[in-house]
Design a protein around this nucleic acid. Structure first.
Length: 470
RNA sequence: GUCCCCAUCGUCUAGUCUGGCCAAGGACACCGCCCUUUCACGGCGGCGACCGGGGUUCAAAUCCCCGUGGGGACGCCA
């Protein structure tokens, strides 16, 4: 069996978006699963809209997700000679012709056709013009497509889809400026790069019969095709920049983990029994096209969050601490990855859905915060001043400043006052963190360290006395 | 409008190919209860779907047809 070769072929007109990322992922998974190669090709024939920044952004997104490629990136702008040569061949063989219709004329005719309720395609009026008539005039090269018969696409996911050739169009192969168009270069590239499986979004299904005709005209062997259902946004319909966050790196910047993104993406349109959590390694062993669904799926940020929470919960604290650093920096906190920061992370792993959220809730570990007024009013009452002083004193005398050693201190303080532990813990929490929500109070103290705890408690007691005196 | 694709809880899906094990399973979200020093985590429970209609069959979520709905494509974009 010949080696399987798949590809991802984005056009560099923006960021790597969710849909593209999933297409890339499926392509790579499929190649890996079958011991084949996955390559990356940048479709930049549209010079107007392609930018180097977009190329960079796409590669960055891919790299972040860990979707590595075995070959490339190839750039179509570097392969122009090939396309021109192949187009010339088609013209020479009479399989393509020059058309002198202008974009304006075509636009008018399309509109008219649509109004008449017809499919608005090219009326082929230049198809049989004598060669002399096009000489010296600006012209495009069009494919001479068959007028009758049918073309069927043997789609790996959908089965055979049959098109009337009459429905298809005489595609433009080369523009007036001589540059080649998508439907043409994609065929030349996929064929010459030895792509065996063209797996892409459903929006290309209708292009496939035209491309098949080109394969045949050019004498190329046909690859297998497979079209994935699209990913829809909140409002249904394909993801839009307006209403949905479509850029992969935007999720990175909001504190999502790449493995969570991958895991979420792979489950969108693909399933493996009841399993929800998959590692990439595992996916490479079990991914199959047969279990890719046929209907579009809606992108659900809440489920993504849930998956992300899972990976944060189970992730290595040391690694997470390194990833957390930029999020802290954004809040003006300079920190570096360290065993201590890993300890900070540990206290939040079970309560953070994103790294951004973690950085936000971790602020009080780095700076003393004024207590939130509501919490202060409720918990920093006059009788807590002696409590804080008592606890500070006892903690100061502890041989080991460990959670196990701290607990009896709090138990005693509670018992002495005939109260439950919460009566003591909650005011201390406010004194230490400025609010009523935090990890376990002993964990917090453990991270803060004895000196800081004692200082914060003493300071809080001082403020309370001051206030009740004044 | 024309062509093409699709159709199970609000969402992601299992089940559909190979009809019976499905009075339809799991996950997210939501709601309750439990655990508990707060918030979470976790545990338990609840809510909640086979788009409609015809057929085929002893039997249909599963096969067929027709509707309906949703989506995509109709470019000198990709």
């Amino acid at each position: 069996m010949p080696e399987i070769v798949t590809r991802f072929a984005p056009s560099p007109t923006g960021y790597l978006h969710i849909g593209g990322a999933r297409t890339a992922l499926f392509n790579r998974l499929f190649a890996r699963r079958n011991g084949g190669k996955f390559l990356l090709r940048v479709e930049d024939t549209d010079r107007e809209r392609s930018t180097p920044e977009a190329v960079k952004a796409i590669l960055e997104g891919m790299t972040w997700l860990g979707i590595t490629w075995d070959e490339g990136p190839y750039f179509q702008t570097e392969r122009m000679e090939l396309y021109l040569k192949e187009a010339g061949r088609l013209v020479a063989e009479g399989k393509a012709y020059r058309c002198v219709c202008t974009p304006g004329e075509l636009e008018v005719r399309r509109k008219a056709a649509r109004e008449k309720g017809e499919k608005p395609h090219y009326d082929r009026r230049c198809r049989d013009l004598p060669p002399g008539d096009t000489e010296g005039k600006p012209s495009v090269v069009r494919f001479r497509a068959p007028l009758s018969g049918t073309t069927s696409v043997h789609d790996l996911l959908r089965g055979d889809v049959v098109y009337e050739n009459g429905e298809l169009d005489d595609l433009v192969l080369l523009r007036t400026d001589g540059s080649p168009t998508y439907n043409f270069v994609v065929v030349v590239d996929d064929a010459t790069m030895g792509i065996t499986h063209v797996l892409r979004g459903d929006d290309h299904l209708n292009n496939t019969p035209r491309q098949i005709l080109l394969y045949e005209a050019l004498g190329y062997p046909l690859p297998s095709f497979g079209h994935f259902p699209l990913i829809h946004g909140k409002e249904g319909g394909k993801l839009s920049k307006r209403q949905d966050d479509v850029s992969v790196t935007a999720y990175r910047d909001r504190g999502f983990l790449p493995e969570a993104m991958i895991n979420y993406l792979v489950r969108l349109g693909w399933g493996h029994g009841d399993q929800e959590i998959f590692s990439v390694e595992e996916l490479q062993g079990i991914f199959s096209l047969e279990s890719v669904g046929k209907s579009p799926s809606r992108f659900d940020p809440e489920k993504l969050q849930n998956v992300n929470a899972h990976y944060i919960k189970t992730g290595d604290p040391q690694r997470l601490s390194a990833l957390l650093v930029p999020f802290l920096a954004r809040r003006g906190i300079e920190a570096e990855s360290s065993p201590w920061l890993a300890k900070v992370v540990r206290t939040f792993q079970e309560r953070s859905k994103t790294l951004e959220e973690m950085a936000e809730s971790a602020e009080y570990y780095f700076r003393r915060k004024d207590p939130d007024p509501k919490s202060a009013e409720k918990f920093l009452t006059p009788e807590t001043a002696p409590l804080f002083e008592e606890i500070a004193r006892e903690l100061g005398g502890l041989p080991d400043f460990t959670p196990a050693a701290m607990e009896p201190v709090f138990q005693r303080a509670a018992e002495k006052r005939g109260a439950k532990l919460g009566k003591v813990a909650q005011p201390v929490r406010v004194a230490l963190t400025g609010g009523t929500v935090s990890p376990g109070i002993f964990e917090v103290m453990d991270v803060l360290g004895r000196d800081e705890v004692v200082e914060r408690l003493t300071a809080a007691a001082g403020r309370i006395r001051e206030r009740s005196a004044g």
